[in-house]
């Protein structure tokens, strides 16, 4: 549906975007792959040459890797569980006839716009600080011992912060999906004598299933790369207690200047992300035809 001339023009119009993204995708990735097979340390410039699988063996074999992988899974899984369940619940609540719906929507979405380092610092200093944090005051008020969150439960604390940031996102998407469920569909179900629980399981949940899938997939992409929250609060510690794969690569590559090992970790991160991306693309791609 166009002329050869428009097709030529359209190729020219797309060229900058395609070239930029192509370079962005290929060059650094190839370099990462290359470095991952090299002995390359900024601290020890004498160590050079082909390393074979040594970097991978070093990274994958180190207990810190296993722990980071587990931490990554806990982080992603924990945040997903909180945000999807909480988001569904909150979306259902906001969809009820209530006063001030519009304002509520704005209030609820707000945490999503707070930049990660600020979110982390608010929680770290304002809420979770064992001395003057709001939670410490609350615990004291109830006669409990204040908790030193980031030392005692570092990973859990990070999960809370990240969940706080992403709960609004899940809520907003699910609320949008919920509001597109037509009133007639609900009324029909009510006429058929379905009670609230049946309606939820047979009408509302199936309708939201696709949006929930999308929320899970998109969040997973972002959650795999959680970085600033860890950097600002625990620095990955104590030990490796709150280090995820992304932070491990940063620690190894940039902080310890071991380019080879850091790159190997990077490649592993790419592989993990690709597995998730594969499913996301299929979900979004299906929608393209519609």
């Amino acid at each position: 549906m166009a002329t050869a001339q428009t097709r030529t023009l359209s190729r020219i119009m797309m060229a900058p975007a395609v070239i930029v993204l192509l370079i962005w995708m290929i060059v650094p990735l190839v370099m990462t792959l290359w470095f991952s097979f090299q002995n390359y340390s900024l601290i020890n410039p004498m160590m050079t040459g082909f390393a074979g699988w040594a970097n991978y063996i070093y990274v994958l074999g180190d207990p810190s890797f296993t722990q980071s992988l587990v931490n990554t899974l806990i982080l992603v899984g924990g945040v997903l569980a909180i945000t999807v369940i909480g988001g569904t619940f909150l979306a259902l609540l906001l969809d009820q006839p209530i006063w001030g719906q519009g304002i509520l929507r704005i209030i609820v979405i707000s945490p999503f716009f707070v930049m990660p380092p600020v979110a982390a610092l608010i929680w770290k200093n304002g809420f979770m600080h064992p001395g003057y944090g709001v939670l410490a005051h609350l615990f004291e008020f109830f006669g409990l011992e204040p908790v030193d969150w980031f030392n005692q439960y570092p990973l859990f604390s990070v999960v809370i912060i990240v969940a706080w940031q992403w709960l609004p996102f899940a809520t907003l998407i699910l609320l949008t999906a919920l509001q597109s469920l037509s009133e007639e569909q609900r009324e029909a179900a009510e006429m058929d004598g379905a009670n609230a629980i049946n309606r939820f399981y047979h009408i509302i949940l199936p309708h939201m299933a696709r949006s929930i899938t999308i929320v899970i997939l998109i969040q997973t992409i972002f959650l795999l790369g959680i970085f600033a929250e860890i950097r600002v609060t625990t620095g990955g510690g104590p030990g490796y207690a709150s280090t995820n794969i992304a932070f491990l690569v940063f620690r190894t590559g940039i902080l310890s200047n071991d380019i080879g090992a850091g790159s190997a970790g990077g490649v592993v991160a790419v592989v993990i992300a690709n597995i998730v991306a594969f499913f996301l693309m299929r979900a979004v791609g299906k929608n393209l035809d519609a």
């Binding site: 990462t32 380019i259 790419v270 993990i272």
Partner: peptide, 20 residues
Amino acid sequence: MWMLSTKMMPAVGVLIPIYL
């Protein structure tokens, strides 16, 4: 879809080369 997929590449995967 390919453009979207570049968005899914984890930043840490390319951090080191970009840094260098």
